[in-house]
Amino acid sequence: MAITAIPYIIERDFKRFFRYKWWLAGMISMNLADLFIMALVYTKMIKFDYFKFFAPGITVTALFAAAFMIGREVNWEVRRDYYYYLLSLPVEHWELALGRVLSGALRGMVYMFPLLLIDFAFLGVPPPLEVLIIFLMLFLLSLGISGLSIMIAVSTNSFEKFAVMRGVTYYVLFFCSTVFYPLDLIKSISEQGIIPPFLAVLAEVNPLSNAADLIRSFLLANPPFNITLIIPIITFSLPITLVSSLAYAKILRRQR
């Protein structure tokens, strides 16, 4: 009984996800417009093929946005005392916690998948082992993002505080990453003193950067594949998944 409850939690969260039609439509339009309009025009303004560079970046961005969405729902549940209903279900607390983190991660993967297919269509399909590594790492990243958003969501009862924390996390992880620009450029700008050095360090250890560069390394061979691309994703995701599950379960108990 215990194990079988998780698929139900995932099913429920998926149904809710597809109810956000407007959000999905807006996000899809934004992602496609970024890729097929903005990146194509930037390609003409930059010395390298920006479209190819940006395609893996937008895939990771989409994964982030969709996986992060679960936090919004969890925060709503915390604010509205909806957890009483959840606690009334014949589900263990740890199942509920793990189920929520997992469903957030799977939602990210499902939303990201068509964009990854676009990457493969335009940049080429890597060998099966590399495809497997990409999927595995993206799933780990998605778990970490889902966990991070749940951690933020349960840390406050105030929607205002949650919205600010969510926004700051978004902007820091998006803009201080290699999603939009190469790491070498960020480092060189930091060395020139144009941006503070910690931003370059942040971009280097940012799991979004490493996930985007991992896809690039297999699809574009630039940057070359290196185990250091994987380590930050694992060190970010596994502890956060664990801590967020514990935090969510603790909040459920505390509220009761």
């Binding site: 303004m45 930059i46 939009f180 700008i189 941006i195």
Partner: peptide
């Protein structure tokens, strides 16, 4: 962030 970094990336 984006403006500063992108301005060093483009040839404009």
């Amino acid at each position: 962030l984006f403006g500063l970094i992108a301005s060093r990336m483009v040839v404009v």
